[in-house]
């Protein structure tokens, strides 16, 4: 699926990266703990999180992620939007809570990218 499909599945509002929505994504992860993202994530291209600060964008950048979705309607500030723009990362939010957002993406066919999912 593409980032555009994620937007539709979660009814997202887009903050930046409208021109990057056609990128293919193959897996996602959900976490509020950035150290866990750094420890366990491998080639997941979407990060769902309830945490809103610039380190979320920096963590996604380190992991070459393409898109961040903030759950529970959380909104990034302008500094985060500028940072994401400079790194080519799409920022969106959804009003869904973490569990429901992950569930909706799973329903759409997206997986976590771990062996146990196969």
């Amino acid at each position: 699926m593409t980032i555009s499909d994620v937007k539709k599945a979660l009814n997202c509002k887009v903050f930046c990266g409208e021109d990057l929505m056609d990128q293919e994504i193959h897996s996602a992860c959900g976490s509020d703990m950035m150290s866990d993202v750094l420890a366990y994530v491998k080639d997941q291209s979407v990060l769902l999180t309830g945490l809103v600060n610039p380190q979320v964008v920096r963590t996604a950048d380190m992991m070459d992620m393409l898109c961040i979705v903030f759950v529970r309607g959380k909104e990034p500030d302008q500094m985060m939007i500028n940072l994401a723009q400079s790194r080519g990362i799409v920022l969106m939010n959804t009003s869904l809570r973490m569990f429901d957002a992950c569930g909706a993406l799973w329903d759409s066919g997206l997986r976590g990218g771990h062996k146990s999912d196969e």
Binding site: M34, S35, A39, Q55, T59
Partner: peptide, 12 residues
């Protein structure tokens, strides 16, 4: 509260 400090830094 910023997403770090879980004792994963050095092990990572």
């Amino acid at each position: 509260s910023l997403g770090f400090g879980a004792g994963m830094g050095l092990p990572n």
